[in-house]
Design a protein around this nucleic acid. Structure first.
Lengths: 220, 220, 220, 220
DNA sequence: CATGAATGAGTCTTCATTCAT
DNA sequence: GATGAATGAAGACTCATTCAT
C-alpha cells in the first residue's frame, strides 16, 4: 500500500513537471495533471496541499539539489584548490540541470513571474546560491589576484549556466539540439571553463568584463 | 476625439505590457489591465478582440520592429561590408530590446509557453528572424572564409542577445543592474562585437564553438 | 435627406426580419442587424428605441395587416354571404402570410416565447383576431345551421393557417418546397376551402371535429 | 450516493426542459436553470459540458425515443399488415409527444433556429425519421395501390403530428385545451387515422392531396 | 488512501445602450 | 441624421478545493 501511495505522489510530481514546463504554472490545471498522472484530482490537494503547494514542491526539489552542488564544493575550499572546486561546481550544476532539464526550465522561468506566493522560498534559495557563489568565486579570484569585480563575474556566469535552458525553446525548436544530449553538455562545460580561465587568467579578457560594470556597481 | 481613442488603446497596451511582464499572461486578468489603464474592461475586447488578441498585439508590435532591424541590414549587404551590416544589426537589436525591455522580456518568456494559440504568429516571425540571421551570418562567415558551422554560431549569438532579458530578474533583483541603462547596453554591445570578431577571425576562438557542435548538426 | 432616413429605417427593418427569422430574437445581436443593413448600430436605438422596440415594430407590422384581412371581411358580413366573406378572409391571410413569410414565421414562433415583454401587444392582437374569427365563423356556422362547436372549429382552422409556416423548416429543408411558391398557396387554399366546406356542410366530417372536443370545452 | 447524482442531473434536466420551453434556449440563463433545480450553476457544465450540451441532451433524449417509435413499427412490416404498423406508429408518436409535451414543443421550435450548433445532431435524426417514414408510408401506399405522391403525403402527416404542439400556445392560452389531456390525444389520433384512411383509400380525398403537389415535386 | 460529486469565487466575453461629436 | 467610442450589466464557463463515502 505504501508503495502505491508513494507511487501516486511521484506520478503527480512527474506529470506536474511536464505540464508546468509545457504550459506554465497558471496555464496548467489540476485536472490536466491528474489526468496525465492517471490519478484523482483530489489527491493533489491531499498530497501537496493544493496546486500552489505542488509548485513549491517543484521549487524545493530543484533548489535543494541545486544548492547542494554549490554547498559541497564551497566546503571543499578548505583543503582543495579554489579553481578546482569552482570548476567542479559548474560541472555539477550543468549536469544536474541537464538531468532534470524540464524542471530546470520551468523553475528558471516561473521564478521570473511575480505570483506573490512562494516568494519566500525562492528568495531564500537565491540567497543561499548567492552566498555560495560568492565564496567560491571570490576564492578563485583572490587566488588569481584578479581585480575583476565579483558581481559582474557572477552575473555572467549565471547567464551562461541558465542560458541554454531559457533559450531551449529556440535551441531545440529552430535548430534541433537537445539539452539532455550529454555531448552538448560536455562541450558546453568546456566552453564555460575556458571562459572562466580566460577571464580570471588574462588581462585581455577580464578587461571586457570590467568595462561592462556600470558606475552604480563599481562600489558593490 | 481621435486623441482619446488612441489614448485608450495605447493606455491599455502599456498597462498590458507591464502586467504581462510582471505576472505573466495567464496570471494577468483583464480587470488588472483595465484598472491599471483606468479604462473599462470591455474596451480590451473592443480594441483587441479579447485578451488573447492583446497578447498577439504585443507579439506583433515587438516582432515587427525586431525583424525590421535584421531586414534593413540584410538589404544593405549588397553595397556594404558584411561585418559592418552584421554588427549594426546586433547593435540595433540590443538598443531596441533595451528601449522596450519589458516587452522584450515578456515576449521571450511567453513564447516558451505552449498556449496552442498565436503559435502561427510566433512561428512566422521566428522563421523570418532565422532567414535574415542566416543571410547576415553566412555573408560574414563567407567573407572571412571561416569554416565555423552556421547554426551553432547563430544559436550562440541568439543566446547572447536574449540572455540579459531572460536573466533580468536575477540581474536586476540580485545585483541591481538595470537593462535600460545605456551604459550597460553600450558595453554589452562591445562585448558581443568582440566575441564575434574573435569567433570569425581567429582559429582559437572558433575552435570552442566548433567543438560545441553536436553530431546531429555536423552536416547542416 | 428624408429619403435616406426612411431608407435607413427600412433597411434596418428588412435586415431584422431576416435575422430574427433565421437566428431568433435572442440569438440576433443589434450589431448583426446593423452590419447586414450596413448602418450604424446606434441607429437602431435611435429609430426603434432599442432592440425590443424593433421586435415590437415587427409584431405590429405583421399583425396590423393580418388583423385587417379579418376586419375587412367581418365588415362585409352585413351585405355579403358569410361563406364568401369567410373564404375570402382565409385566402387573404394565406396570401398575406405567403408574401411576407419570413415575418410570418418569426412572429408565430416568437410569440410562443415568454419574454415578458411585448406581451401586451401580442395579447391585444390575438384578442382582435379571436374576435373577428368568432364573428366570421359563427356567421358561417349559423347560416349552415351547423351544430359544430365554435372553438374547435377555429382552433383547427388556425392550425391549418399557420402549419406550413411553423413546419416550414421541415417542409423546405427536407422536402424542397418553398412557401412563397404561388402554386403551393393556391392549392393549399383549395385544400382548406374544401375542408371548411366539408366541415360545415356534411354530418360526417363535422362528427370528427365534434368528437375532438374535450369535456372541458363542451360549455365554451 | 449514486441516487443523489442521478438526482442532480435529472433535476437539471427537468428544470431545463421547462425553462427552454417557456423562455427559449437563448432566453434561458444557466442561473435560471440552476435556481429552478436548486443546484449549483457549475453542475450544469459539470454534467452536460455547458449550456449547449444541455440542449443537445434534450434533443437526443427526445429524438431517441421518437425515432424508436418509427423504427419498431418499420421492423414489424415484415410480418404484419402495413396499415396496422403505420397507424400504430402514429399512435405511439402522438402518445409519446403528449407524455413529454414540453420537450416536444421546445424541440420542434428550437430546431427551426439556426444556431449553427447541434446542426449535425438534428440533421442525423431528421434523416432517420425521414427514412422510417418513407418505409412505412410507401408500404401502406403500395398495399393500397394508391398513386398518391409519397412526399406530399408525408409532409401533411408531419404537419398533423406536430401541429398541436407548434400551435399549443394558441390552443392552450386562447382556448384552454391541454395537450397532455388523454381525451384530446385519443380523439386527435382518431382524426388522423380517418384522414389517412380517406387519403389512401378513396379517390376523392386523395385528389385533394394530389392537387397540392407543386410542379417541382411531380417527379419525386 | 481514494473517489467523484458539489461548490463558489473569479474570469473572459458579449451586448444593448448612451453620448459627445 | 449619423457616427463610433465607451460603458456597465449580465452571461457562460473554469477551476481549485472540499467533503462524504
Amino acid at each position: 500500500m505504501s508503495v502505491s501511495v508513494n507511487n501516486t505522489k511521484e506520478l503527480i510530481f512527474e506529470a506536474a513537471i511536464e505540464l508546468f514546463h509545457a504550459k506554465g504554472f497558471k496555464g496548467t490545471t489540476i485536472r490536466d495533471i491528474a489526468a496525465k498522472a492517471r490519478v484523482n484530482p483530489a489527491n493533489i490537494s491531499y498530497y501537496f496541499q493544493g496546486k500552489q503547494g505542488l509548485l513549491e514542491a517543484c521549487l524545493i526539489r530543484f533548489f535543494e539539489s541545486y544548492v547542494l552542488c554549490l554547498e559541497e564544493e564551497a566546503k571543499k575550499l578548505e583543503w582543495e584548490e579554489p579553481e578546482i572546486c569552482f570548476n567542479r561546481a559548474i560541472k555539477k550544476i550543468l549536469y544536474y540541470q541537464s538531468e532534470c532539464y524540464l524542471l530546470t526550465r520551468l523553475v528558471w522561468r516561473e521564478i521570473t513571474i511575480d505570483s506573490q506566493v512562494s516568494r519566500e522560498i525562492i528568495s531564500s534559495y537565491l540567497m543561499k546560491e548567492r552566498y555560495y557563489l560568492k565564496i567560491l568565486a571570490s576564492a578563485v579570484l583572490e587566488e588569481k589576484k584578479t581585480v575583476l569585480p565579483l558581481s559582474m563575474f557572477i552575473i555572467q556566469l549565471k547567464g551562461m549556466l541558465t542560458m541554454p535552458y531559457l533559450n531551449s525553446q529556440y535551441v531545440s525548436e529552430v535548430w534541433g539540439i537537445h539539452l539532455q544530449d550529454s555531448y552538448f553538455i560536455e562541450k558546453y562545460y568546456g566552453f564555460i571553463k575556458d571562459w572562466v580561465g580566460a577571464t580570471i587568467g588574462s588581462r585581455r579578457d577580464s578587461a571586457y568584463v570590467e568595462s561592462l560594470q556600470p558606475a552604480a556597481l563599481k562600489s558593490v
